[in-house]
Each structure stands twice: as C-alpha cells, then as structure tokens.
C-alpha cells in the first residue's frame, strides 16, 4: 500500500497534508475554544473572491486569496466597533458576497478557469511546488505569531473582559487572531477548498479537546490527528477514486463520531 507514496504527486500531497494539519491544529484550536467557527466559515468563503481575482489578473489564486481573506477577517472582527451591525449579520453578508465576487471575476476572465473546482472542493493531489511553498511560509508565520502572542491569545479566548483589565489590548489581539484564521484559510484553500475547509479547522481540534486540558497539548494533538486523518482520507480517495477533499472531510467526521462515542 505504501508504494503509492512513490508517486511524486502523492509525496506532494503528503507534504500538503502535514502543512494543512499544522495550520488547522494551531489556529483551529483557537477557532474551537473561542467559538468562531462560523466566522471562520465566512472568511473562507470570502477568500473565494480572491481566487476569482487571481484568475482575472493572471496571478496565483492562492496568493490573491491572501488580501481577500485578511480584509474580510478585519471587516467581520471590526464591524461591532464602527457600525451597528452585528457580527452575525456581517458573517452572513461576507460569506456570500465573497463568493459572488469570485464568480463575477471568473465570468470576466476570458476562457475557461481550468481548476476552479479544486478551489471550491479541494484537490490535494494537484498542489504544485509553489502552492507548497506558500503553505510552508504561511505555516511558519502562523506558528511564530502564535508563539509570540500565546499569552494574549489565551487570555482573550478565555475571558476577553478580564484580559482587557489586565492590560491586554483585547480588540487588537482578536483581530490578529482573525488574521491568522485568514492565513490558515489560504493554507487550506488548494488542498481542501473553501467550502470544505471549515471541517479541518474544527474537527481535529474538537476531537483533541476531549483529551487535553492545556492549549499547547491541544494544538499538538490536533495537529497529529490532522496529519493522520487527512493522510487516511488521501489514501482512501486514491484507492476508491473519490474526490480528495470530500473524502478527507468524511474521514474527519467519522473520527469525530467515533471519538465522541468512546468518550460519551
């Protein structure tokens, strides 16, 4: 069975699985404990606007997704401060507007958008070397930022009001956290697609949370689980010739169900 990893595309997919698992394990842990799952869903869908713009401008859609996801993250996170619009409403608006922008850009782009489907539903088997490089750089940024601001992220996630009394700049830290979510979305976009990637943010961390009482262990365990489960999904999708993103999500969901049953 292991011989399938002799193929270069499989090796790349394996590297991609590790890289996405790091982003999901680290940032996904905050997404789950801070309960910003739907907010993260909005950021991921909004990022599709960037993918469309990438096609239109002829740049790597993964790179073009970075400004889109960051701007939408800041918009959702900051909206309470500047306008009487609830975060929930902002999530609903950006979720679909980002997608709509993406679709319109693709309409405007002459010719056919070859691997559009992979940005929607993911295609871990077609990640390129440059995609991997982008993912690696973003992973490094994510891990370094989390390491530097780990005390603030923990304090703000646990009790925002108290943290601000102790001198944490809670809003700035919250926006920084959302920026990391946005970068993680970009890490995942090619491999799992904007529609499915939220499962990777939530499921490994949600499983790991049942077993660890400490955020560092939670991140490590979630990353490990992510690697094991995405690789399993990858292999299954290859064997049964199924869409990789969807197979990975189903493997994750099954693991969650089993773990919940065993713990319950």
């Amino acid at each position: 069975m292991l011989e399938i990893f002799q193929y270069p595309f499989m090796q790349k997919a394996l590297v991609a699985a590790v890289l996405i698992s790091v982003a999901c394990g680290v940032v996904g842990s905050y997404v789950v404990i801070k309960r910003i799952v739907s907010l993260s869903g909005a950021i991921s869908h909004a990022a599709f606007g960037g993918v469309g713009m990438g096609y239109f401008l002829g740049v790597n859609p993964v790179l073009a997704a970075i400004p889109f996801s960051i701007v939408s993250a800041m918009a959702i996170g900051g909206v309470r401060q500047v306008a009487k619009i609830s975060e929930d409403t902002a999530i609903g608006i950006l979720w679909s507007v980002g997608m709509a922008i993406g679709v319109i850009f693709i309409n405007l782009t002459p010719g056919y958008a070859p691997d559009l489907f992979s940005y929607l539903f993911g295609s871990i088997l077609t990640v390129s070397n440059s995609d991997l490089l982008i993912m690696l750089v973003l992973d490094v940024i994510i891990v370094v930022v989390v390491y530097i601001f780990r005390r603030e992220f923990l304090a703000v996630s646990f009790d925002e009001e108290f943290s601000s009394v102790t001198g944490v700049h809670a809003l700035a830290i919250y926006l920084l956290l959302l920026a990391l979510v946005a970068l993680s979305v970009v890490v995942l976009i090619k491999a799992v697609g904007v529609i499915l990637l939220i499962a990777l943010f939530t499921i490994p961390a949600a499983i790991a949370k049942q077993y660890s009482y400490n955020i560092r262990n939670l991140m490590i365990l979630a990353t490990m689980l992510g690697i094991i489960l995405t690789t399993t999904g990858l292999v299954l999708s290859y064997i049964f010739d199924l869409a990789s993103g969807a197979t990975i999500v189903m493997v994750l969901a099954s693991a969650f169900a089993i773990s919940y049953y065993l713990n319950g």
């Binding site: 009790d159 009001e161 102790t166 400490n214």
Partner: peptide
Amino acid sequence: RKLMGYLPQHINFDPDFPINVFDTVLTGRY
C-alpha cells in the same frame, strides 16, 4: 488598569475550555 484587580459578576467562558486552575489565576499576573 495595571493598578486594579477585578472579579466580574459573571464570566462567559466555554465550560470545557482547556485551562487549569493554576494557569487561570496566572493570567491575572499579565
């Protein structure tokens, strides 16, 4: 603010937030 200690009346936190007692109190020393 650095001069103030605060006990809120209500604290909204995730009931199974991954943090222990020691680390919770430690956040007060930020």
